[in-house]
């Protein structure tokens, strides 16, 4: 597994760069989604998201 990862992704600078870029994107998105979940859980009912359905037609 480690060897596979090394040979395919990390060995050449070109694939290493792509790995970093794609990895960053996935990581950041994941962290954002989790953060939003926690934030909305903690502030249940207080955010605009939770009350806007009362005012939209």
């Amino acid at each position: 597994m480690a060897n596979f990862l090394y040979n395919v992704l990390f060995k050449r600078s070109s694939t290493f760069t792509v790995t970093i870029l794609v990895g960053c994107f996935i990581f950041e998105r994941g962290l954002d989604v989790i953060t939003d979940k926690i934030f909305e859980q903690v502030n249940q009912g207080k955010l605009w998201k939770h009350i806007k359905h009362q005012y939209e037609t």
Partner: peptide, 16 residues
């Protein structure tokens, strides 16, 4: 205040 906790947002019903 309801918004004093480290993760606590403002209450948007109150803002309205």
């Amino acid at each position: 205040w309801g918004f004093y906790g480290i993760f606590s947002s403002l209450d948007h019903r109150s803002l309205r």
